[in-house]
Structures are given as C-alpha cells and as structure tokens.
Design a protein around this nucleic acid. Structure first.
Ligand SMILES: [Mn+2]
Ligand SMILES: [Mn+2]
Ligand SMILES: [Zn+2]
Ligand SMILES: [Zn+2]
Lengths: 154, 154
DNA sequence: CTCTTAATGAAAAATTTTTTCAAAAAGAGT
DNA sequence: ACTCTTTTTGAAAAAATTTTTCATTAAGAG
C-alpha cells in the first residue's frame, strides 16, 4: 500500500502540497526543516505556501508517513517514515538518516526501569547519532532488509 | 562538588540569573520552558530578564547542570541534570521526571546497529514516557486535552 | 459534471529566540 | 575593602518560527 492510499484511507485528500512534501522528502534522504521543504517544493509547485507545508507535515506525521527528527540544536527536521515502529540513526557527518526497527532490544532496559521506578513505560524516543561508513572513510556495506535507508543526496 | 563549584571550575561566573534558574528548576521537579522559568524566577529576582534565562540555560546545559527534554509537541523543557550520563523517564500524567543511568543497557542494541549499518554510533538520545505510580492509580480521571506543562503543582 | 466540504495561500498575528549595546556586577589582584 | 578588567546583564529591537484568519480553490463523492 502506497502513501497516497494510506493517506486516503485515513480520510485525507491527496493534494498537491502533500504530494510535494512527500516528493521532496523522498529526494532529500535527510532531515529537512519546513522552510527547506518549502524552498525545494516551490520548484515543482510555484504557488506552494509555507503554511501548507506546516499543515501537510502535521497531517503526514499523524498518519505516520513522516517522522520528526530531534537534534541537539534543532528539532524541526522531518524525514520519510518507514511503516511501523522504527528508530532513527543519524550521521553527524553528512546528515544521512537510517531507520531501524528493534523495539525488542529495549524491552530489557524498560523492564528494568519499570521495576526500579514503579512507572509503567508506554512509549519511548530513541535516536542514535554517529558516523556513516563513507564519513568514517570506510567502504559501504550492503544493508539487510528491515533496515531501510532514506538515502543520501547533495 | 556542588553546581556553583562546577560552574566556576568551568570558567563561568556565579551570577544571580544562573542561581535563580537552578533554584527554580530545583523547586519544580519537572520540565519548565524558558518562559516558565522566567515567570517563576522573577519572584526571587524582580529584574530578571528572559534573555538571561536563555543565556543561563545555554551555559548550564553546556556544563551539564541542566538537561533539555524532548516531547512530542515541544522540546523547550529543561530539568536539573544529575551528574553523569542519564536518561529521562517522564510521566505523561503529571509531568514528573525521573533520571536513570544505564548506558550499558544500550550497548547490545548499539553494537547490533553498528554491525548491521556500518555506522559508528557515538551518541544517543533516549527518553521513556509512561505513568508514575500515583498516576497509574488515577488513570480514570483523564485530564482535559491540551494540558500544559504537566504539573504536580499549581 | 455538480456539489459539498476539505484544503489552500496570502496576510496578519502570535510566539519564540537571537542580536545589540550601554550599564551593572563578578571576582581577581591589590 | 577598593580597584580594575572582563564577563554578564537587561531593555529594546530584530529575526525567525509557528499559528490564526478568511476568502478562494480544488478534491473527490455522487
Ligand atoms: Mn522503539
Ligand atoms: Mn545513554
Ligand atoms: Zn526535540
Ligand atoms: Zn555520513
């Protein structure tokens, strides 16, 4: 099921601004701010308004098609979201973003924390930051399925 | 070693705005935005400027005395930071925040991700969200949506 | 093709954060 | 305590970001 179908089934209309935002994020492969999305999007849709980018991002995020990226300085970056629960791995060299699953890898830690604090843990935010192979000076390796990459550009 | 000594050793001066920010965060026990810190801080330091709160937070965070909290909606909350590497556990009911160590609990996951992506992981952002014991008991009394900075006080 | 309603874009408003700069005050050295 | 140098402050202005408003457009069901 493609994103348009997902959007549609969730009760939203397929509109030009939403198409453009998805298209731009697809091309980029790394987090873009609303302003950046707007700038790039206008190349394809001249009259695109920044407001519509904000609104499109809100909808797309709610439907799970887009994910917000939290960084030390800014938290206004968005990337395309793979379906399902994933975490983000970010290269601090080139900005490339990789998503990976693995909620189960946290279950031990979560159980431990629940035991010691009495809290009931319901959700989590996990992001890893590091250097991708090219940025380390190493050569690229193949990526196993389940580990979709959002690609590199520029 | 107390926070004033730590600030001092890092080459910063102990000033009223910095004292006030530390004092306010200590009292609060849950994340406060710069505006909130400013409002509360003025009770003790009439002429405190919002600008100084921003500047104090920047310095205190850099020295590791204060930590920024990322949330779904806003990422401008600050809490006092325990010395060393900790993670944050946040109650989505009352806003109470607990810090916990445990970098070692992530080492397995990180090693796994490094192996499969070729990335070298250097840092991470981990936050857990859930319900604290008191809030688990009063689960049925749901709060009106739009509740501000989770607060036990008020 | 028609019709209803969601969605858009321009503009304005509201918020948040940063910059500027003269004045104040921290703290080191008398 | 007093002096001196440098950091820090607070007000104001500027910049940047996000939200609201509202008339107009267009998505998509029928
Ligand atoms: Mn997870
Ligand atoms: Mn950690
Ligand atoms: Zn954030
Ligand atoms: Zn890289």
């Amino acid at each position: 099921m493609n994103w348009e179908e997902r959007l549609s089934r969730a009760g939203w209309r397929i509109t030009m601004p939403r198409r453009v935002v998805m298209w731009v994020l697809q091309q980029a492969g790394h987090p873009l701010s609303p302003q950046e999305i707007h700038a790039r999007g206008r190349r394809f849709h001249r009259s695109l308004g920044l407001v519509s980018v904000y609104r499109a991002l809100a909808v797309l995020e709610q439907v799970g098609l887009v994910r917000r990226v939290h960084r030390e300085d800014r938290c206004d970056g968005y990337i395309l979201a793979s379906p399902g629960h994933h975490h983000i791995l970010l290269c601090r060299g080139c900005g490339r973003t990789v998503e990976f699953p693995g909620a189960e890898d946290l279950s031990g830690l979560i159980a431990h924390v629940e035991r010691r604090t009495g809290f009931r843990v319901e959700d989590h935010l996990l992001q890893l930051v590091g250097l991708c192979p090219p940025c380390r000076g190493s050569r690229l390796r193949s990526r196993p399925s389940g580990w979709e990459t959002t690609g590199q550009e520029k």
